[in-house]
Design a protein around this nucleic acid. Structure first.
Length: 199
DNA sequence: TAGGCCATCTGGTCCT
DNA sequence: AGGACCAGATGGCCTA
């Protein structure tokens, strides 16, 4: 397959060395098992208007290069957004950068965990009047327990308190999930381990 | 060296 | 018509 792009070496801005391979190049990746016979392709091309073959090639090449440039920028924007997302996720200073998929899954789980934290903190506040933030911090180190009230840990439900979709294992919980009275000293570390451990 | 991750190119499709 | 978005292909780099 090395030769597939060898004549168009995309990184270079060289003009296409060939004049009649545009359609056949496209067919390389088409799903049709039988590429169009060359004569047919040439007939189609002759039906075109007055532009010379060379001009057509230049236009095509220019469009392609512009499209490549846009696509590159688009992906760069996407990566920038991903970097921003990494920036707001809890991380250890010496930790290696999360991969794209890790970042997305981590963020997903993080949001879910925070939502659970708030929900449970609200419940607790209703009961005891404790400060929600303190409780939220405490809950960061806690893993949800399987089957605890609306939280089904092992499946991806659709309710707001459903578990992360990427849970591949059940990390378990130290106790009843509604008991928020204990505080975890290294809540964040535990939380990181927990969230990262489940995808 | 195999496998994972990534950047880039590319053609197709949809939308404006 | 042109741009945005998407998915497949490819090659490079890195690590276990």
């Amino acid at each position: 397959m090395d030769s597939v792009y060898s004549d168009i070496d995309s990184n270079s801005c060289d003009f296409f060395p060939h004049t009649d391979d545009e359609d056949s190049r496209g067919s390389l990746r088409s799903t049709s098992p039988e590429p169009e016979p060359q004569q047919l392709q040439q007939k189609k091309r002759r039906r075109g208007r007055g532009r010379s073959e060379a001009t057509v090639q230049v236009v095509k090449k220019t469009r392609r290069l512009k499209a490549n440039d846009r696509e590159r920028n688009r992906m760069h924007n996407l990566n920038d957004a991903l970097d921003e997302l990494r920036g707001v996720l809890p991380a250890f200073p010496d930790e290696t950068k999360l991969t794209k998929i890790e970042t997305l899954r981590f963020a997903h789980n993080y949001i879910w965990a925070l939502s659970e934290t708030i929900r449970i903190a609200d419940l607790q506040t209703g009961k005891t009047g404790d400060a929600p933030l303190l409780l939220s911090a405490a809950r960061l180190g806690e893993a949800p327990s399987p089957g605890s009230d609306a939280c089904s840990w092992s499946s991806s439900g659709s309710s707001s308190s459903s578990s992360p979709a990427y849970c591949s294992s059940s990390p378990g919980s130290p106790g009843a999930s509604e008991d928020c009275s204990y505080l975890t000293q290294d809540a964040l570390y535990g939380f990181r381990s927990f969230v990262q451990g489940i995808y």
